[in-house]
């Protein structure tokens, strides 16, 4: 399973490295969302600084939708999905590989957006450990849930419009928890508030990863 996962993740990341969709489209989109938030909320009043954690995670959420859609778009051309089904790879491995590739891309994106949040929103990161723990747990959860729902919607004609409706209510807890934990890391709220949220993020990540490992075979057959 792990070997198949590494194979799958390597393939997806190689496609992204060569096609440059993630770097040329998804990353600029994330930064653009941050800039648009600044337009919407008057940047002079300190609103941005206070809302920075929430805005950061909303931008990540939007970008993760694109990343998930991209992850399945590469399988739709030339009946690559049928090839995947016939490849004999372990379905759980395919799931872990796809989720791993999405997670790595999201982590890179979060790093980039984090830099922009510090630069554009004047946010001060006081506790890097909390930020890293939050980002790790939230990213695994987002990637796992995203790939489960991405697979559910893959192969449908309306997948581009359906995926946000399916996925966003599901990852709402990630937005709530990650925002609250990041607020604590930025000293907006007391630091003791952070860890329960990181725990919730970890529980979310574990549940969706387990579900994906168990159910991906059925999902792969049906799509």
């Amino acid at each position: 399973m792990w070997r198949d996962a590494a194979l799958m993740a390597g393939k997806d990341l190689r496609i992204e490295a060569r096609s440059r969709v993630a770097t040329n489209q998804i990353a600029p989109f994330g930064v653009l969302v941050l800039v648009l938030f600044a337009f919407a909320l008057d940047p002079d009043r300190g609103v941005l600084q206070r809302a920075a954690p929430g805005l950061f995670w909303v931008a990540v959420l939007f970008a993760s939708l694109l990343a998930v859609q991209r992850s399945f778009a590469v399988e739709s051309a030339d009946s690559a999905r049928d090839g995947l089904r016939l490849s004999g790879l372990d379905p759980a491995g395919i799931f872990l590989g796809k989720a791993g590739a999405v997670a790595l891309q999201l982590l890179a994106l979060e790093l980039l957006l984090g830099v922009f949040v510090v630069l554009l929103y004047d946010a001060d990161v006081h506790r890097a450990v909390i930020v890293m723990a939050t980002a790790a747990a939230a990213t695994v959860g987002l990637a796992a849930a995203g790939v489960v729902y991405g697979m559910l919607a893959a192969g449908l004609r309306v997948r581009e419009t359906l995926l946000p409706l399916l996925l966003l209510p599901v990852v709402a807890p990630v937005l709530l928890a990650a925002t609250r934990a990041t607020e604590a890391a930025l000293d907006i709220t007391p630091v003791s508030d952070a860890w329960p949220w990181v725990r919730l993020l970890s529980v979310f990540a574990v549940i969706y990863t387990t579900f994906g490992v168990l159910a991906f075979e059925t999902l792969l057959e049906e799509a």
Partner: peptide
């Protein structure tokens, strides 16, 4: 999936 999300959402919004 939607039904399993309900308890998670429940804890998240409660906290």
């Amino acid at each position: 999936l939607a039904v399993t999300v309900v308890p998670i959402d429940h804890f998240a919004v409660q906290w």
